[in-house]
Simulated scan of single mutants.
Amino acid sequence: MDLRKLPALNALRTFEAAARHESFSRAADELFVTHGAVSHQMRALEEELGVALFVRTGKRVRLTDAGNRYAKSVRAALMTLADATRDVRSGERTRRLVVSSSPSFSARWITPRIGSFMDRHPEVDLDLLSTNALADFSRDDVDVAIRYGRGNYPDLHVELLLDEVAFPVCSPRFNGGQLPKTPADLLHVPLLRSDTDLWRPWFEAAGLPDATEPRRGVLFDDSSNLLLAAGDGQGVALARSSIVMQELVAGRLVRLFDVEAASPWSYYFVCPPPLLTSARVQAFRAWIFEEVKRFRAVYEQTCGGVRSGVNESGPLAPAAVKGRPSPSDVR
């Protein structure tokens, strides 16, 4: 084939992002361009190929059958280019390990433990990339991602790392030390709000089906800031076990009640299949799964006992929770 007849690489990258999201707006955000630029590029690509790639309905788009087939081929080709680029970047790059995760998980779960990995593997130069943006392995210089979602990540190696539950926490000094004694008492105190962990499923697990989501007060989009506010005595927070455990062990926060709500999302270990066999990725994978085992032991020691609203297969087992919005992956 005459390579001069191929569409421009930039147009193919834009198409891959638009196809993956089935949204020109999300593709534009990911590529740091305008919605209009993505729309213009996609129309130009369709004209060049002589086939419709998207069906446009108002502000929404979806792939045609031809667009879906083309997206799979383009994604595979871009992944091959990304792998080839990694191979060319030899030398120091083979020592460098780039791990992407959300700021809260990186700060509250990985960072307190990462010293043991560095002691065990001084030959690895580790970069922790803390971002709420979804790592694009075909474009970003990332080896491994820890993603919080449902685990549906096509064409990637995906392993369940850690299931998640949430429960109320507050400062031991909250309300002058007069802490809520029953779940119903929470209806009369300030509840801190988060854009990822909602109170409604916990209320249902606690036997309060008529309780509503709090509508007033600050809305925190970062779990670390949520816990800082709780530690400052500003109210009661609904916290994920993986994010709050260090605060509980240190006594800066205390858990309220034996009720927890299982999250419909989990943490996943994700990487491109060709990278899974690399020494640096294998080293990190072995380390983080060992740390998860230790975390579960600490969880049982700190939060053990009879708990309501939890699947019988374990305290961190996932359970379906209705009425929840989808996270942006990664959170």
Rank of each mutant, 00 (worst) to 15 (best):
M1I: 13
R4D: 08
K5V: 04
L9R: 10
S25M: 06
E30R: 12
T34W: 11
H35E: 09
Q41P: 02
R43L: 13
A44I: 06
L49Q: 02
L49I: 03
A52S: 05
V55K: 14
G58D: 04
L63E: 14
L63Y: 04
L63K: 04
L63A: 14
L63C: 07
D65V: 12
G67R: 00
A71R: 04
S73T: 12
R75I: 04
A76G: 08
A76V: 04
A82P: 11
D83W: 14
R86E: 06
R89Y: 07
E92H: 15
F105W: 13
G115K: 03
F117C: 07
V124D: 13
D125V: 11
D127S: 14
L128F: 10
L128H: 06
R139C: 02
V142P: 06
R150Q: 13
V158C: 03
N175H: 04
G176M: 01
T182L: 05
T182N: 11
D185H: 13
T196A: 09
R216Y: 08
L219M: 14
F220G: 00
F220L: 00
D221Q: 14
D222T: 04
S224E: 10
S224Q: 13
A229N: 01
D232W: 10
D232V: 07
G233T: 01
V236K: 00
S242P: 07
V244E: 00
Q246G: 08
G251D: 03
G251H: 01
R255Q: 13
D258E: 08
E260P: 03
S266R: 11
Y268F: 14
L275F: 12
L276F: 05
F284D: 04
C303W: 01
G305D: 09
R307V: 03
S308C: 10
S308A: 13
N311E: 07
A317V: 02
V321H: 12
P327N: 12
V330K: 07
V330Q: 12
R331V: 02
